[in-house]
């Protein structure tokens, strides 16, 4: 009774106005967009060079591989010319993949304070990395355009092909793959910190196990290497990106393998994420 009397003193008459209710998916998209915007904001306001940093990495790598393979070893086949465009069509998507997977390792740990204090759907931490790195990837595409235009003034110009219409499929597949791997990696690293280093090693290996500095068409379809490469989902994804400029790059069987594998990884990711998220919240 004491408590009720005390409450009535408190003029309960003024009732809190109900807030405009927003659906769960609206809240999700709203939070995802805010965090993605935050990532890009931090990235572009804290460094003087801003945008340049996000293209500098693939640009420098392209320069190095161009020097090694074209200038030093004087290699190059007719199907891979101009080599700089050949490199960048795969290096830019690789930068998206590589950057995202590296960041996934710290997805929860870096945001521990925010996760402990704010109720946000937990999968956002994986989605926001995929999205912000994906936007950086799209923003880096003009660099490729510049190299294509430059190649028009060389003996081996690059021509855009009809297969470029499949590029959105490659972007979608790559996003599915990154989200799936992220859902697996992000929670597990919270318990096994050394996994972060293991991921860096695997990524370095994967770089060479993916047709980036070389093309898939250089192996004939019965060779053992081709079978191993086909098993890598990035092989199919890269073959789509590359087919925008290079005939004979598109490898539908590899694309089908990539689609199946990406979806399976996403499925495993969703299951593992659900199982682990409770423990992750306790551990942070």
């Amino acid at each position: 009774m004491i408590s009720e009397a005390k409450q009535s003193e408190r003029r309960v008459s003024a009732v809190v106005a109900p807030r405009r209710e927003r659906s769960v998916s609206q809240r999700y998209r709203h939070s995802l967009w805010l965090l993605t915007k935050r990532d890009l904001q931090v990235r572009y306001t804290t460094s003087a060079l801003g945008y340049v940093w996000s293209i500098l990495d693939p640009l420098l790598m392209s320069a190095i591989y161009y020097f090694v393979f074209v200038v030093v070893f004087k290699r190059g086949s007719a199907t891979e010319d101009p080599y700089i465009v050949f490199l960048m069509t795969a290096l830019l998507p690789w930068t998206w993949f590589n950057g995202s997977i590296n960041d996934m390792a710290m997805a929860f740990i870096r945001e521990a304070k925010l996760i402990r204090s704010t109720s946000i759907p937990r999968s956002i931490w994986v989605m926001r990395i995929t999205l912000s790195k994906g936007i950086e990837f799209l923003l880096s595409l003009p660099v490729l355009v510049v190299f294509v235009i430059i190649s028009e003034f060389t003996p081996t110009p690059a021509h855009i092909r009809f297969d470029a219409v499949y590029t959105p499929l490659a972007i979608l597949l790559e996003a599915v793959l990154i989200v799936g791997l992220g859902l697996i990696i992000a929670p597990v690293v919270v318990f096994f910190r050394d996994l972060e280093r293991a991921i860096k090693l695997v990524l370095r290996l994967l770089f060479y196990a993916t047709p980036i500095v070389y093309g898939i068409s250089r192996f004939d379809s019965s060779s053992a290497i081709k079978h191993v490469l086909d098993f890598n989902p990035l092989t199919g994804i890269m073959s789509i990106y590359r087919s925008s400029f290079f005939a004979g790059s598109l490898d539908w069987p590899a694309v089908i393998i990539a689609s199946v594998e990406s979806l399976v990884i996403l499925g495993i990711g969703i299951l593992m994420f659900r199982r682990n998220v409770r423990a992750v919240l306790k551990e942070l």
Partner: peptide
């Protein structure tokens, strides 16, 4: 917890309030 060191106070207010809905 939700405040970001590198962003201004103004940006932080919009970010934190936004994350809370």
């Amino acid at each position: 917890g939700g405040f970001v060191d590198d962003l201004s106070v103004r940006e932080n207010v919009y970010l934190t309030a936004g994350l809370h809905g």
